[in-house]
Design a protein around this nucleic acid. Structure first.
Lengths: 160, 160
DNA sequence: GTGGCTGCAAATCATTTGCACTTTC
DNA sequence: GAAAGTGCAAATGATTTGCAGCCAC
């Protein structure tokens, strides 16, 4: 089961139906639930994780439908795709934010971006920058604490 | 065929044999060529692209060998893995640098990082930052120019 | 009513793995 | 000579697709 979000500040979001209808897409049951599931967590769920959670509410949805919808919701900008080394993930937080990846447990945390920060340094000439994103790597508090005690720990988030 | 690198400033690199032997790994023909191929370009080749290029020099290498070696070279830190939406890519540039992704043609350019830049803004408390990486998105010069003329263009880099 | 959407199952594509044979050290 | 590495082919896993029926508009 996907845990609820912890303390993420989210941008106020328009009702889903609008953006969809504007492009001739329908707001169906599965689609709505898939969107709700991705938005309800800050764990950046994998496709499999979204599928599992959606099935708890709609036991008949198929994996294909989840794939199709995540793809189309991402194309509409209603969720964001994240390519991680372990595979594709989805981020329902549409507010501008960066990410922190714990190199020990693999969890990815949202880092809210303080107001409209300019790109951290000017890149090469000739390029028109439209946006940027910062990925931090390090160790989260829990893993730092655990590192002191010799208790074995999960190497990576299992993706659910 | 993988184009040569353009103008990337690379960190001076130790001869491949050392880092490998230090970990009980052998410097074989395929392994050496795979490393050379990834290092010789700044195009961030996919596995398939590396395979194609390596085969031009060693026609008998198998795809499995390329996978195994890229994985192990990445584990040794001799190349870097990049998870992109289109799939796994490899980066032979070991100097600290950021990336610029052209949203039109999909190409990823290396952005050299001016000296040791501190993280662009302090992230959340409780996290120990070990490194960070910046991804820029926008349009490259070529695509900006082409946008003026109504010539159709490749939507995305084909990954080779 | 109709076109988009769905579930299902089969097809495709990427990646990994088992094994007998080579090669490096 | 032993262990690591290789080629090959088969296995696994992830994602996509075809299609007949369903449902939102």
């Amino acid at each position: 089961m996907i845990p609820k979000k912890t303390s993420a500040r989210r941008a106020p979001v328009a009702p889903p139906g609008e953006a969809l209808r504007a492009r001739g897409l329908r707001l169906t049951g599965p689609r709505r639930v898939i969107l709700e599931v991705v938005r309800a967590t800050d764990r950046h769920p994998s496709v499999a994780a979204v599928y599992a959670e959606v099935r708890r509410r709609l036991p008949r949805v198929s994996l294909g439908t989840v794939y199709r919808n995540l793809r189309c919701l991402a194309a509409e900008g209603l969720v964001r795709e994240r390519a991680e080394p372990a595979g594709l993930r989805f981020d329902g937080n549409l507010a501008p934010h960066d990410h922190f990846t714990c190199v020990t447990c693999g969890r990815v945390l949202d880092i809210p971006r303080r107001r409209v920060a300019p790109p951290p340094h000017p890149p090469a000439p000739g390029l028109r920058i439209m946006s940027h994103r910062v990925e931090f790597y390090g160790r989260c508090g829990a893993c730092r604490r655990r590192a002191a005690a010799p208790t074995p720990q999960r190497r990576r988030d299992d993706g659910r």
